[in-house]
Amino acid sequence: MGKYIIKKLILLIITLIVTSFIIFLIFELVPGDPVLDKLGTRATPEKIESLRSQWGLDRPFFVRYFSFLKGIFTLNFGMSYTYGMSVTALLREKIVINLVLSVMALSVVIFVSVPLGIYVAKHTGGFADKVVSFLNQTAMSVPSFVLGLLITFIFGMVLKWFRPGGYISYKSDLSGFLYFLIFPAVALAVPKIAMCIRLLKGNILEEALKDYSMTAYARGNNTTGLLYRHVLKNAIMPTITFVGMVAADMICSGIVIEQVFSIPGLGQMLISSISTRDYPVVEALVLMIALFIMVISFATDIIHAIIDPRVRLQN
């Protein structure tokens, strides 16, 4: 197991380095010059040269890449072109917002869909199953941002449970911040919950028909015993993979949702810094998103290995 984790960790670092190179290369190739963008067309060549050397853009490509790469491990991505402050300080708050939002939405997905999926699988064809199937169909076909608008309207404007657009920074009021994020988190989670329930139910029913389930019945197991002792461990694997993908998607969907709820998160930062060609910020942001996805997939692999001995003992 330890060996497996180390192997995956090394793989993660290699992927990170490759990804960082691709990200850096892409923003090198994108047309547009941040220096000209900042100074305008009437700038003198001397001024342009001095800003270029101030930002370090006169150094060769690989030198700049290696300082970027070094920055990943020291968490120092240089100075933002537009804000004139360090990228790390600029992004710290945004990352906290999106991380909390994603984790909240993900917990909602897991804690709602796993018990509900098990329940409807156990009572297939029953009343609850029919209700959940109907709700699933509806929830799956409504995109998160529409749901976000609906939630803003119903809970924000009609019921007045929260103030629309009234984002509270975690620095000033942590509980207020967490409370406000519940609403976008739910908007993010609902469509995923629907998919997750369907997936889990389908897998449980499929596993329950396999030979080993028949053996378990032949030993005198009841449905509950079969479900928890045998089926669940096998049936949960695809759901774990799916939750991993959902987690990765949370960051990207979060970019849309934060617009709906006017949260000053990564998304707004990303859009504004792309339009001002603030490359240190954009590169750091894209890298953070990529890193988040990599960590999630690393975690999924480890959970798989814990549950399934065939994964763990393969090598």
């Binding site: 030979d211 028949m214 053996t215 032949a218 030993r219 005198g220 399934d308 001995p309 065939r310």
Partner: peptide, 28 residues
């Protein structure tokens, strides 16, 4: 009834299936 039957299954009647790989739970 099912509950009584479960007492007999595995206790009075043992069952061995055709394919030992598939009839064992792979994760246990």
């Amino acid at each position: 009834p099912r509950t009584k039957l479960r007492e007999i299954q595995g206790n009075d009647i043992g069952f061995v299936f055709q394919d030992p790989l598939n009839s064992m739970n792979p994760v246990l």
